[in-house]
């Protein structure tokens, strides 16, 4: 049972993170190497809510969403927008996000140290699993919530993008920013929104992580290749690709490692991060457009079939 919890919670969290990464990449063309920092911030919001304020961890969900969203928005407005105005290259933008990641790792570790020293709370390699509510049959609430968040995200984004005027403008701005602007759409607002949303979602992912796994600032570095892998497998262009890619990479990390342990022994667990890396390389070599490209190919085949 535990492997199912492990696998699905991790995969859902990863999928939420991939959606956020894909969102800002697709909308503002920035591969955000500091995306994990927003998740770790959410993790510490969970720790503060639960151990310092004494509230339910779930109260941290809106708090983490707001906090991570705001930090992400600020980073976009204060750094990324300025660099983009100066027509910096994509590599310069990446370096800026890496720099922000390093900066945030400093901030988060200071936060961790301060929590420990100020409130005598374990703030590294901590887990809030014991504070979670257990439903019938030992089913942890976080399991249900993780999946609910992912499903809600998928439906919510579908509704936002395809059923609202705002979403329509978002899609328009993604496809052709210049045209959108000449037609009166304030794309700055839409781009800012995407960073807020992306950061906020990462914050929520962080809270969920803390409820099941061990939370630590070092996760920022460890998990980054996994969310790149998930997003690339998904194609880095569509929200649904990101969800599928995240789930796929997340599940193969957990289940793949467990399977390998059965064959090779426990030591192989240490090498788990190699799995997403392989997934990423394989995708880039075989199908650089990821699952999204696969869908397009299948669609075209079917069209051809019909025509023939």
């Amino acid at each position: 049972m535990i492997i199912i919890y492990d696998g699905l919670i991790y995969a859902s969290v990863l999928a939420v993170l991939c959606v956020g990464l894909t969102l800002t990449y697709k909308i503002t063309s920035v591969p955000n190497f500091s995306h994990m920092a927003f998740a770790i911030l959410g993790m510490y919001m969970a720790l503060i809510t639960s151990k310092v304020l004494g509230l339910s961890v779930y109260a941290a969900l809106p708090l983490a969403f707001a906090a991570s969203g705001l930090v992400s928005l600020l980073f976009y407005l204060a750094v990324i927008r300025i660099l983009q105005k100066k027509k910096s290259s994509v590599i310069s933008l990446i370096i800026a996000t890496l720099a922000f990641d390093i900066f945030m790792i400093g901030v988060l570790n200071i936060l961790a140290d301060s929590i420990r020293n100020g409130f005598q709370v374990l703030s590294r390699d901590f887990t809030l699993r014991s504070t979670d509510i257990v439903l019938a049959d030992g089913l942890p609430l976080v399991f249900v919530v993780s999946i609910a968040v992912l499903v809600g995200l998928a439906l919510g984004l579908y509704y936002l993008l395809y059923r609202t005027n705002y979403g329509m403008r978002m899609r328009a701005s993604i496809e052709n920013e210049t045209l959108a602007r000449t037609l009166g759409i304030d794309t700055r607002l839409i781009f800012s929104m995407s960073w807020f949303l992306s950061g906020g979602l990462a914050g929520i992912a962080g809270v969920l992580m803390a409820l099941w796994f061990q939370g630590d600032p070092s996760l920022a570095m460890i998990m980054l290749p996994s969310i790149f892998a998930g997003s690339i497998v998904g194609g880095f262009t569509s929200i649904y690709g990101a969800i599928l890619g995240g789930l796929l990479v997340g599940l193969s990390e957990i289940i793949g490692t467990t399977a390998l342990v059965d064959v090779f022994g426990y030591w192989i667990v240490q090498y788990r991060p190699i799995i997403p890396f392989i997934a990423m390389i394989a995708t880039l070599l075989v199908l650089p457009g990821g699952l999204a490209q696969l869908v397009t190919i299948i669609r075209q085949r079917r069209l051809k079939g019909k025509n023939a």
Binding site: S92, A96, A99, F103, I105, G106, N109, D113, S114, N117
Partner: peptide, 25 residues
Amino acid sequence: LPFDIIWLDYLALGGVMILVLIFRP
């Protein structure tokens, strides 16, 4: 300070890099 001094290193390096990219690319 109520935290390990090493983290100031992170703040400084990350901060300097961003400032350089913006003001002295």
